[in-house]
Amino acid sequence: MASYDAASRTSMAMLLSVLASCLVFAYAGNFYRDFDITWGDGRAKILNNGDRLTLSLDKASGSGFQSKNQYLFGKMDMQLKLVPGNSAGTVTTYYLSSQGPTHDEIDFEFLGNLSGQPYILHTNVFSQGKGNREQQFYLWFDPTADFHTYSILWNPQRIIFSVDGIPIRVFKNLNSRGVAFPNKQPMRIYSSLWNADDWATQGGRVKTDWAGAPFTASYRNFNANACIWSPGKSSCSSLSPSSSSSSSSPSSAWLMETLDASSQRKLRWVQKNYMIYNYCTDRKRFPQGLPLECTATATS
């Protein structure tokens, strides 16, 4: 694990103390139990006794859902199968977000494209209302042919984005260096399928072909190992990875999880071969200097 200075250790100790009365929950999801369909007028459907959910988009509307629970740290996995064929103009999202003008947010966004062209996986992190931290990737497989697992690990030290267990991005807690980190606002999980042909595909040059509608994305196998937030308190009882856990409270090792040497090699492989945009190298966008977090060199 990366070393921390005294201020960082003090801040971490205070955070762990605040959360010390919580219970870490882990469960395999059921869409009836865990999510509410929030918009789409029937275009979102829960199927197979809650094992699968589909979102659809037509010219009149898209659709979306959100988690019933709010979370303050967690490891969340969701399997998605994206819109096949000509998906230009469409955006499928899976993200965590709080509310309000100083909201926090952790984003997966899948930008559709013309048939035969790859999807763009767009990621972003907002903290205290500040975003503009985009990294974009091509995927090393066809995300429309089968389900793949997209994971967000969010603990007090870092955020790790992963695809099929392979890390693609890390955003570290650099509060001690003046970089806000999402660690105080509970967030819900959201997902949507909507039309964004004013910007999503080749900067808006390629529009949605409504002859292919309805467009459909599918979800299954949601899993959460997380601290659930209820008004005014979290529900975790222990944050120690080595602490004993009851049958309903599995290991909380994710709360201290970092990248081992093998995972760091995989991260470098993805970023070398599949990253197509990184805000931390865009000096034209930041002529006065790159954001402070971009100067950190450790990836774990």
Rank of each mutant, 00 (worst) to 15 (best):
F171Y: 12
T297Q: 15
G42F: 01
I152F: 05
F73K: 00
N173W: 01
A211R: 10
S244P: 15
S218K: 08
W199Y: 07
P167M: 00
P214H: 00
Y150T: 02
Q157W: 13
F141A: 05
I106H: 02
S235M: 13
E293I: 04
A298D: 15
V170K: 00
V170E: 03
P156A: 05
F126M: 07
D36W: 10
L80G: 10
D34L: 06
G212Y: 05
S262K: 13
A200S: 09
G129A: 01
R220V: 03
S240L: 11
A296M: 12
F141S: 07
K59D: 12
F25I: 13
K266T: 11
L53D: 08
L239N: 10
I160Y: 04
D146N: 10
N49L: 08
L239E: 09
N113I: 02
G89S: 06
P84S: 01
D107K: 00
R52F: 14
S115Q: 11
L16D: 15
P101V: 08
R283S: 11
Q70I: 07
S176T: 09
W154H: 04
A253S: 08
S87Y: 03
R285A: 12
T281G: 11
G212T: 06
D51A: 14
R220I: 03
S218R: 05
Q288S: 14
L15H: 07
F222C: 06
P182Q: 01
T149V: 06
P287H: 00
P241K: 00
G131R: 02
S63P: 04
F141K: 01
I120M: 08
V206C: 03
T216P: 08
W254E: 10
S249C: 14
Y279G: 06
